[in-house]
Amino acid sequence: MTRVLLAKPGLDGHDKGIKVLATILRDAGCEVIYTGLHQTPQKIALAAVQEDVDVIGLSMLSGAHVDLSRDVIEQLREAGLGERPVIVGGNIPLRDVALLTGLGAAAVFPTGTSYEEIIGWFAALPTATS
């Protein structure tokens, strides 16, 4: 069963999308841990270590997604979880998608992405069948 940490880095408090995604992934058979709002990159990496998750999902709608994702990915590397995929969702212009994957994001799901597509991404993970 895939273990997923869903996290809200930074000060943005818009969490409709991440909460709905949490229930949809849960219904699709994942084990979901949601951090709640206002998490620092350090706290997110710590939670990922403590919960030993397979995937880390970040949601940001404030426009600070590039900087915050970079910090989270760095913190995860320092914590020894550099190989665990990080996925990023939220209000993300197309021009930033390549930037985020360049920083090491495994997938980017801007607003408007169907949940089918996200579930499909999870279904293709090696942990999905283990």
């Binding site: 000060l11 206002h38 404030s62 426009g63 600070a64 900087d67 915050l68 910090d71």
Partner: peptide, 22 residues
């Protein structure tokens, strides 16, 4: 901006990347 909404000064580390943004 979000730091002002959250009661943080612009040089507070928690305000990183959000000062003057929204």
């Amino acid at each position: 901006d979000l730091p002002t909404q959250m009661g943080l000064d612009s040089d507070d580390p928690r305000a990183n990347y959000e000062v003057g943004r929204l």
